[in-house]
Design a protein around this nucleic acid. Structure first.
Lengths: 195, 195
DNA sequence: AAAATAACTTGATCTTTGTCAAGCCTATTT
DNA sequence: AAATAGGCTTGACAAAGATCAAGTTATTTT
């Protein structure tokens, strides 16, 4: 179960606690390894997000499609992130989002019920959840602040500073969408920035 | 301690649990009632946010000021919300935000340490925190999605649907800033919408 | 290697939003 | 009652960003 090492490392790092052999066994028994091929959907708009998946390898985008057929990317997710539309996952309501693999992926997936029953009782896991929730609140707040107060060019600069590896990994049309810009506009912004 | 009833109701409602008399006493012993007058600051940019406050009465804005001196409102908070810059509150780092009372306020405030030591051990409280954190994740995600994919007019319409009481309660220049628009643009949007 | 697909760039033009300035209400405050 | 401040609106203009169309360069796929 080589896949699980990444998950154990992640839980232990974020929680600052160690997992016993028994606890690791609980993870192995309830998380299911799954492969998702590039362009395959993890979640389709209108479906309930029954699983959350820990990304061992690969990357995905979470997006909506508007009436004009344009994609808007809410999230870009890579290794050591949790894949899900949490609104749908928590409430079991139909999702407004699509989640699609951008590369071949390996994930460890689990349902909400199994998390609640078997995984949350593990202290390191619930400690991890608290830390994760704080980090998320902070990151989303920053992104929201940028969105209401910065220009496209400034938001791009911030992305370059905060997540430089995203630029290596994802094509610019996806980055543009994530920033709330068209690909054309981002192309021009980059051109102007080379002064 | 009439003030505390709002807090008890809130914790019980969100957690779906009841508070015993002893637990209520713990709240009363550690939360300090505080009045904040209109235009007074709860937090100044550069200071550490040492307290979080439960709003019993009144309203506040959380905002930054850019180099041109323009305000950008990240949050508008009213009764039954928690007042804080959570990044600063959790990490005890200097805040990038200001929080200022828009009306005379009554809050119940407490430090991070006291929450951790005395309040979090109360099961209803930590259950409330989990629910709150989920609600927050969902709401912020929705706002972010709107911000990258909708026009100003559409974002305004969404606000009208989701938080109609905000329009009654706050002047339009604050609403505009919250939406990432100038007051002039929002004024024109409203004018055009009356067709 | 050829074909097909996806990604990036550039130009021309249109739309949305911001900026600056002025005027008008409507509450406070004095 | 006069004065002041805060908030709303409108106009003229500027800037940022979107759209449409075309052409180019890379990557995959066959």
């Amino acid at each position: 179960m080589d896949n699980f090492q990444a998950l154990f490392d992640y839980v232990q790092k974020l929680s600052g606690q160690t997992l016993s052999a028994e606890e690791k066994q609980v993870f192995i028994e309830h998380f299911k390894p799954k492969k998702i091929r590039k362009r395959q959907y993890f979640l389709q708009e209108g479906d309930v997000c029954k699983y959350t998946g820990f990304i061992v390898k690969g990357a995905a985008k979470t997006f909506t499609v508007d009436e004009k057929g344009h994609e808007h990317i809410l999230k870009l997710s890579i290794e050591n992130w949790w894949l899900a539309d949490f609104e749908s996952f928590y409430k079991l309501t139909p999702s407004r989002f699509n989640i699609e693999a951008l590369e071949d992926m390996e994930i460890l997936q689990i349902t909400h019920n199994l998390v609640e029953e078997f995984i949350k009782p593990i202290p390191a896991f619930s400690a991890m959840q608290n830390v994760l929730s704080q980090n998320n609140t902070i990151a989303t707040q920053k992104r929201m602040q940028s969105s209401i107060s910065l220009t496209g060019e400034e938001r791009f600069q911030e992305l370059v500073n905060d997540y430089p590896h995203f630029l290596q990994r994802f094509p610019q049309n996806l980055i543009a969408s994530y920033l709330g810009l068209t690909p054309e506009t981002l192309s021009r912004i980059r051109k102007n920035a080379l002064k």
